[in-house]
Design a protein around this nucleic acid. Structure first.
Lengths: 155, 155
DNA sequence: TGATATCCCATTATATCCCATAGGTTAACG
DNA sequence: CGTTAACCTATGGGATATAATGGGATATCA
């Protein structure tokens, strides 16, 4: 099972390139497509990302479901509101260059409000890309909330 | 598994030609027919498209289903009202030119209300061609709906 | 033979390849 | 045990390749 851990902050260079942290790349060495799938998070101001096989798993599940229902028409018609279809349209295939960098498309830069530096945040089976200062805030809030709950629970 | 991802906006030139995005063409390199199958979406103001092998796969499944149901008459007599057969009649084979472009027939231009620019929208196992501004609306609605569901689900 | 579609070549912006360097870490070795 | 060597990661930049697009010339068809 591929697994993304820890947080790394890297620079976006003048050509828009940014190094994917080596430990994350190491989790993707077995992927056929050497690169990442990335799309704007629908829940947060960040980019969600993982390897191609994760996406294909999603895709195959949709197709299999249609076919096993005998509803192959759905493959033709699509389901305009399906989450998977919406994400397919938003997702980008970002290949690694020889040095393990990717170029983030403008749409993703905007969605996560990225600047010169980006934070790669491990989330287990996927990872996220954040504006480092926004992530700090988010993280502090999350930690505070957990501590608050612990405090209440322990009294 | 061929898979169409992301959204690309390209121009229709004065001769009616439009480049199919290189990543989509790359997903079709193994196809016998070098081009796309395209038909007006029955669900949305857009063009649905994929490679020939996907069409053949669907065709085969319809035939198999008729035969295993013992409904041989359907194969011989046809079911003019079946979705698959209706789409067969609406579909166009659009070959790539040397530069990977296709010419969209007037019927498809009309169906999707296309103008000088078109959006190629990856949908996993197929892709769509939209008027870019109409697609923006559609996509924004879809994202808003998903966010709404997330918000409700998380409370 | 006129209209439409196909082939071929040119152009420009962008992305990719390749090489180079700096810093840090690990390995090797006297 | 300390010093040197080898390596890897992140980063930078010049040269090259590719994608999208435009347009002239040729072929095809009714």
């Amino acid at each position: 099972m591929t697994s993304f851990l820890s947080t790394f902050v890297n620079k976006i260079d003048s050509k828009g390139r940014v190094s994917v942290p080596a430990p994350f790349r190491a989790s993707l060495t077995t992927e056929l497509f050497q690169g990442i799938i990335a799309y704007p998070s629908l829940a947060e101001p960040a980019i969600d990302a993982f390897g191609l096989s994760m996406l294909e798993q999603l895709n195959r599940r949709v197709l299999d479901k249609n076919l096993e229902d005998g509803e192959f028409e759905k493959t033709l018609l699509g389901r305009p509101d399906s989450i998977v279809e919406t994400i397919m349209a938003l997702a980008h295939e970002l290949p690694f260059d020889g040095q393990g960098r990717v170029i983030l498309p403008a749409a993703l830069i905007d969605a996560a409000d990225l600047d010169s530096q980006v934070a790669f945040v491990g989330r287990g089976n996927r990872f996220q890309i954040w504006n480092p200062s926004k992530f700090d805030e988010k993280q502090n809030e999350a930690v505070a909330k957990i501590r608050e709950n612990l405090r209440i629970g322990s009294t």
